[in-house]
Simulated scan of single mutants.
Amino acid sequence: MFNNIPPITRNIIIINIVVYVITNFFLYALGNFQLYSILSAYYPFSPFFKSWQIITSMFMHAPLGDGSGLMHIFFNMFMLYNFSFLENILGGKRYLILYFLSGIGAYVIFNAWEFVQVEIFARELESLGFNIYEYFSNTNQILKGSQESIATQKELIEKIIKIISTPLVGASGAIFGVLAAFATIYPNTKLMILFVPFPIKAKHLLIFSIVISLFLGYRGNDSGTAHLAHVGGALVGFLLAKIWRKHLYRFN
């Protein structure tokens, strides 16, 4: 069965699984989180950010002990497997472009919203007499004001620190791009989804997924899932498929 998967998709699945095994071996067998930190993608203005993380994060999943554990990589790889025939339709080169550009789009959209959040928190802190940027520049910043004001400042500082120190594991964003591309090219194809007892048209599944992701991302869901990264990946997949669909038969 595995040999029947088109080569690009097969290699992407293999890389994802190998990276997952190695990173979790370092994390649990050696007690070393460093590899997860190196390969996951941080906020672009974080001191932990490295440029290569935008690419390596596309092969990263939640660690074994992080709630979703194995289910995260299982569902992602299962989705890739089910839509692998899209590689034969688009061709290997375009499929590879789809995967990587969707992953980049996921990173950009997710961190654009994170940037907005950081700026909102920074302005609130500034109104309370605290400059977060000088704080990060090692300038002495003292919390001033009433106890209530100081408590608010501490809470806002913690929110900003959480944003810049929490890595993004971005495989889902790239895979959402694949889903969006399929739904754009074949919108009326009916799909059977795990735990759903009836078929759903691809376009309806995509719309539902985007609406839920937007809602949870805007609400600030604390599940650890980067919902807006899904939206970014899907947006890129949709745009690429709209462009390519006009010339689909010429590709083949």
Rank of each mutant, 00 (worst) to 15 (best):
A151I: 00
G145E: 11
G177C: 11
K162A: 15
T152Q: 10
T184R: 02
K162Q: 14
I175R: 13
I160G: 00
I150A: 00
K144Q: 05
G170I: 03
K190R: 09
F176V: 08
A174P: 07
P167S: 05
I185V: 05
P167V: 02
K162I: 07
A183L: 10
K154A: 07
T166P: 12
E155T: 14
K154S: 12
K144H: 08
N188C: 05
V169C: 13
L156K: 13
F182I: 01
L179T: 01
I157D: 09
I150S: 05
E148I: 13
K154L: 13
G145F: 09
L143D: 10
L156T: 00
E158M: 09
S146G: 10
I164M: 06
L191T: 01
L191F: 02
I164P: 04
P167K: 02
V178K: 03
I185T: 02
V178Y: 06
L179V: 07
A180H: 03
K190A: 02
A180E: 01
I185D: 01
G177T: 12
A174C: 06
G145A: 06
G173A: 07
A181I: 02
G170Q: 05
G170P: 05
S172C: 12
T166W: 10
E148Q: 13
I160A: 06
I157L: 15
A180F: 04
S172K: 08
L143M: 13
I163A: 01
I161H: 10
T189A: 07
A151G: 00
I163H: 03
A183K: 09
S165E: 07
Q147W: 10
I185P: 01
I163K: 04
I175L: 12
I185K: 04
I150L: 08
L156Y: 12
S149K: 13
V178T: 04
Q153Y: 03
I185H: 01
S146E: 08
Y186M: 09
I161D: 14
F182S: 00
V169A: 15
L156P: 04
S149Q: 15
A171F: 11
T184G: 01
A180L: 02
S149E: 15
K144D: 04
V169P: 13
V169G: 06
E158S: 14
